[in-house]
Simulated scan of single mutants.
Amino acid sequence: MVDRPSASSKSLLFGLLCIGKMPRRKGLENHTVGSGFILVGFSDLPGLQGLCFTVLLVIYLVVLIGNSLTALNTVVDSSLHSPMYFFLRNLSFLEICYTSVTLPKMLVGFLREDGRISFLGCVAQLCFLVLLGSIECLLLAAMAYDRYVAICDSLHYTLTMSRVLCIRLVVGSWVAVVPVQVGQTYLVFTLPFCASHDLNHFFCDVPPLLELACADTFWNHVMLYTIIVVFAVLPASFIFISYVAIIRAILKMPSVLGRRKAFSTCSSHLGVVMLFYGSATVVYLKQRSKDSVDTDKYFALFYTIVTPMFNPVNYSLRNKEVRIALKRLLRTK
């Protein structure tokens, strides 16, 4: 006569069967690769899909046309072949690329009412987003240094801000950022995403992606904040110190006209810096909570969309040299 299995034996057998059927980490990663993510974005505002699409389309066209004209203007007009406008040309090109990483996908999502993004698409979007954002931080710092030399050491400006130095500053920004941000992107997407794949954002960004991971993200957060300090906090501190010296030098100028011209030249750059860094600080440096997630994604619009839109306005309408050169360009065309 065969003994019947006891209740404890049945529980053990049931547990082993369940464990055998559970997916391994590799299976979870494959599931992530296959299904991708869902960008929640503005889906909580279903009645405003058409309005959001129209507004973002207008903004994207303004960014493309405005920054393209600014860059073309600094290339064609010989009066704008100075270091300040060399950096402005690179900033305009960077802003076009920066907005093109996120806005086209957002527009397609609103048009189709579908926020799905593939795994590889999310990888590419995140990589280019953090890459171009970090380069912009360094480029804004280079522009602050240019203004510092122009106002505080004007006699040696041409010698100090040589073409070779300007090219090195721009190329050096790319060289310093690319390997670091590619490495961060790799570390983020090697995490297993076993929770919901609904990303409460308009685009793939590091903080919301880390919230979806079902593994320990301590070192990912360490790397994130280290990158923020190196590529955002230090450049912002350098810009602040530069403008303290610039304002002191301007206030010492005997000519009222000279002070106005110097303030006009610096105020455009300072406005862009405050808008870009102010919104990015709210998103990345403050403590995230469930209540602040929606607020953070709205603030993200400022440094990814609003700042690139206002750059041409700041540098063209508030700069007499650029306005005159732009009129000549439009007349020629």
Rank of each mutant, 00 (worst) to 15 (best):
L155H: 12
R260G: 09
G20E: 04
H201K: 04
Y85F: 05
P208V: 08
L64W: 12
R168Y: 10
E211I: 07
A141V: 04
L285M: 14
G271N: 10
A71H: 01
F87D: 06
T70K: 03
L13W: 00
A176N: 09
V63R: 04
M22Q: 10
Q184H: 09
N311Q: 09
S82W: 04
L13F: 01
S118T: 07
F203T: 13
S264R: 12
K26W: 00
I117H: 06
T185V: 13
V175Q: 05
V33S: 01
A150P: 00
V62N: 14
A150F: 03
D198N: 10
L120M: 02
V182R: 10
S35Y: 10
L91W: 07
R116T: 15
K320S: 13
P235A: 11
C194I: 11
L285I: 12
N200Q: 05
F238V: 15
L159K: 11
A249D: 05
G278V: 11
F263G: 06
C122N: 07
V40E: 13
T295S: 11
R331C: 08
M253E: 15
G41L: 06
S134N: 06
S267L: 04
T226A: 14
F193G: 08
D205Y: 07
C97A: 13
I151G: 07
V175S: 08
V164Y: 01
F37E: 02
V283T: 12
A141D: 04
Y243A: 02
D296F: 03
L251G: 03
L140I: 14
G115P: 03
E29M: 14
R24W: 01
D114Y: 06
S154I: 06
S78M: 02
V2C: 00
E321Y: 02
L88C: 10
K10P: 00
K320A: 13
T185I: 09
C52Q: 09
D205S: 08
G15R: 01
A249M: 01
C18K: 03
L317P: 05
L72R: 07
I305F: 02
L275K: 07
A249C: 06
C194K: 11
F110D: 15
K286P: 03
E211F: 04
S162R: 07
V306C: 09
M253W: 09
I96A: 05
Y315I: 04
S134T: 11
I247M: 12
S279R: 02
Y225T: 15
F302H: 14
S11R: 00
M84T: 03
G115N: 10
P308A: 10
V149H: 01
I246L: 08
A195M: 04
H197W: 06
G183W: 15
A7R: 00
M143W: 01
Q125S: 06
K327S: 13
K10F: 00
I38M: 11
F193I: 10
L191G: 06
F53V: 13
R116Q: 12
M143C: 00
V75M: 10
P254I: 09
